[in-house]
Design a protein around this nucleic acid. Structure first.
Length: 542
DNA sequence: CTAGGGTTAG
């Protein structure tokens, strides 16, 4: 357009801003605009400021702003929002303080600015001191909480919002549903879904995808599918949520079916789709199929595998016992393998008792990432399972020396609409006495049914009896005991854990599901375990 | 022309 000498106007500038990919292009447009005498038009000036932020030229934007003879409130908000978008909150704060006329947009920009840099309390202070709030203010706070894993606060603020006059919109609800998903707060999730339906909110592709994810993460496959089939438009993300969710719930065949259905609907898979597909294969050890999908990524779908896809393949091969092939695959990676890749191999070594490779990989990982707790723990557990206690003590010594803290196991469980949190070895819960009594009862009744704790997973202690007690205080066991007390059958006991479930807790949960005739659903870091009548949906392959 | 959104994860 510039070359053809067509005059720009109010409608062409936004297009120019969008199209402007480099600072050189930006300067070119700027010069042209000045030549045409548009420099004193405040609308054009504001567009130019925005354009410079789009091409990452904060300095030029600032210069225009400071030299601008005719600034209006949009100019001020543009420069403020620009700094917020670039993540320069300090500069944004200075602008905000200089502003004489702050409107809702200014306040809202500043809230998201604080949220973006993790100053959650600052954002809240600002929010509380606002003269008035609109739906964007509430959403900025609510989504900010959700993005910083403050899910309880997300729901609290949403509750508070409902007591006021401002009505939520689809954007607000996305964060709320997402918080429910993370907390595995199924009751609240279902309530929010009902609220959405009752108030005739449109279940658009984003909100629908979030609902699907929420139900899948709570183990409610049927509800997730219902949302899916009710959606008007399904983007690749919606398919991904379904494919990943089905796989996570152990419905591998159905997951792979959805993958082929997706192609029939003309939706092209992306990187995440293949994380789901490869993850599905990994869950049940479909090695040949996994290799096939992995090769098809480039050959058919033109999706380049990233480091996580390789990690997934290493895990698939490793878990299936093909340790050599897994290590060879790492050697062929076009990018540097990350710690997760080596971690997958280390996990496989642990599973298949390959102490030699495990020691090699484990030592290397500790050097690569000395502050990561998981690898120390894995290596020390590899030694522990072979009874090499001196090596265990050495690794624990390195951990202590490096100041590596073991991530505490944490389990969440919802009862009567309230989410309860248990940490490993926790004694803080108000019902602790009842829980302790239940833990004793579990121990006694399981022992009567011939269940013996797998104490080799506990590598620290010397005393067998003490090992047993510490195993009985894993966070998921505390949550199960609490669930037996607080949740009436036949409602399943649903638990979410931050780490992978350990061998002993897995065995115990199976036994409890039989002895206590309770259905237990545990979602660990990786996938679901549906315990029923003494067996698990993962068929002990995990 | 300026403010708020989800999906993967040893």
């Amino acid at each position: 357009m510039l070359k053809r000498n067509v005059l720009p106007d109010n409608y062409t500038y936004p297009i120019l801003v969008q199209a402007c990919g480099s600072s050189r292009e930006g300067e070119e447009i700027h010069t042209h605009v000045l030549k045409l005498g548009f420099g004193s038009d405040v609308y054009v000036l504001n567009t130019m400021i925005n354009m410079y932020f789009v091409c990452g030229e904060m300095g030029n934007a600032r210069k225009l702003f400071e030299e601008g003879a005719v600034l209006d409130s949009v100019s001020w908000n543009s420069i403020l929002a620009g700094y917020v978008r670039m993540g320069d909150v300090e500069e944004a704060t200075l602008i905000f303080k200089r502003m004489e006329e702050k409107n809702l947009i200014s306040w809202n920009s500043m809230i998201s600015g604080y949220m973006k840099c993790g100053s959650i309390e600052e954002a809240r202070k600002l929010f509380d001191s606002m003269p008035e709030r609109d739906v964007v203010s509430w959403s900025a706070m609510i989504s900010g909480y959700a993005q910083h894993d403050r899910f309880v606060q997300t729901l609290e603020l949403f509750n508070e919002m409902q007591r006021g006059e401002v009505r939520p919109d689809e954007t607000t609800l996305v964060s709320v549903v997402s918080a429910c998903a993370h907390l595995v707060a199924l009751d609240q999730g279902k309530w929010t879904h009902a609220y959405i339906t009752k108030n005739n909110f449109e279940i658009n592709s984003v909100l629908g995808t979030t609902l699907i994810d929420m139900y899948m993460k709570c183990g409610c496959v049927e509800n997730a599918l219902e949302v899916f089939y009710g959606m008007k438009e399904m983007g690749v993300s919606s398919w991904n949520a379904i494919i990943v969710g089905l796989a996570m719930n152990g419905l591998v065949e159905e997951s792979l079916e959805k993958f082929s259905e997706m192609s029939n609907h003309g939706v092209a898979p992306n990187e995440i789709t293949f994380m789901g597909v490869l993850g599905a294969c990994r869950h049940v050890g479909l090695v040949d199929e996994g290799r096939g999908y992995f090769n098809s990524m480039v050959q058919i779908y033109k999706v380049e595998p990233n480091v996580k896809h390789y990690g997934c393949m290493v895990d698939l091969l490793g878990r299936a016992g093909l340790l050599e092939e897994a290590e060879e695959l790492i050697g062929t990676m076009p990018m540097a393998p990350d710690v997760a890749t080596w971690g997958a191999l280390l996990g496989a070594c642990k599973k298949h008792g390959d102490t030699k490779m495990g020691e090699r990989v484990g030592r290397r990982l500790i050097e690569l990432q000395p502050d990561h707790d998981g690898f120390h723990v894995l290596l020390s557990n590899i030694y522990a399972s072979k009874g090499r206690w001196e090596d265990v003590i050495e690794v624990r010594g390195i951990m202590r020396h490096q100041g590596v803290m073991k991530t505490p196991g944490c389990s969440l469980i919802e009862a009567d609409g309230v989410v309860h949190e248990f940490l490993a070895g926790d004694t803080a819960h108000p019902l602790m006495e009842d829980i302790d009594r239940m833990l004793d009862e579990i121990a006694v009744r399981l022992k009567m049914h011939g269940y013996a704790p797998a104490t080799n997973e506990v590598s620290l202690d010397i005393d067998e009896e003490e090992k047993e007690t510490s195993l009985y205080r894993h966070s998921e066991k505390l949550a199960i005991a609490f669930g037996i007390i607080s949740i009436k059958p036949p409602t399943p006991i649903r638990i979410m854990k931050n780490l992978r479930i350990c061998e002993d807790c897995h065995a115990a949960a199976k036994a409890i599901s039989k002895v206590f005739e309770r259905e237990i659903v545990v979602r660990d870091r990786h996938r679901f375990h549906h315990f029923k009548h003494g067996s698990c949906s993962c068929k002990d392959y995990w």
